[in-house]
């Protein structure tokens, strides 16, 4: 359990600091857009997969610990997106279903649902950050 959380935390941390240096996330998106989930790309001399962090975490062994860890991370991210005012429609439902799946011992299902919730919440937070900087670009200019 501890191990997964720390992997996720490090990955998330690294991602966010990379994004500010322009663009691990841009490079990732560009590669994923072209190739789907099973591609690779190079960034700063290293090779990476186009699999998302969430997909990677959901492919860990399906057990109670891993499912709970992913669920907890997703729930926290969801809260963050909610506080930002950019939560998405289905995220809460995925979390609820994930929790139910954990209770029912369906750990892979729970992990897939939590992964989806986490991804959506993460994108919602990014959407807020983008809007903060760029909403003004959509306003019609004065002539």
């Amino acid at each position: 359990m501890k191990k997964i959380i720390s992997i996720a935390a490090v990955a998330a941390l690294t991602l966010s600091s990379m994004a500010s240096a322009q663009s691990f996330s841009e490079a990732f998106d560009a590669a994923r857009a072209l190739q789907g989930a099973n591609g690779t790309f190079e960034w700063n001399g290293k090779k990476y997969s186009t699999q998302t962090i969430e997909e990677a975490l959901a492919s860990k062994p399906a057990n109670a610990e891993n499912a709970q860890a992913l669920f907890d991370a997703a729930k926290a991210k969801y809260k963050e997106s909610q506080e930002a005012g950019f939560a998405w429609r289905d995220t809460k439902k995925y979390l609820k279903e994930s929790k139910e799946a954990i209770a029912a011992g369906e750990f892979q299902k729970a992990m897939d649902l939590a992964a989806r919730a986490h991804y959506q919440a993460r994108k919602g937070v990014e959407q807020r950050d983008y809007a903060e900087k760029h909403w003004i670009d959509a306003v019609p200019p004065l002539n």
């Binding site: 992997i7 990955a11 072209l34 190739q35 789907g36 989930a37 099973n38 591609g39 690779t40 290293k46 090779k47 990476y48 997969s49 186009t50 699999q51 990677a56």
Partner: peptide
Amino acid sequence: KLISALAVAGVAFTGSAV
């Protein structure tokens, strides 16, 4: 560990999507 695991997974599938 994560990166290398992902990289290996990626290599195995190169080009398949398109």
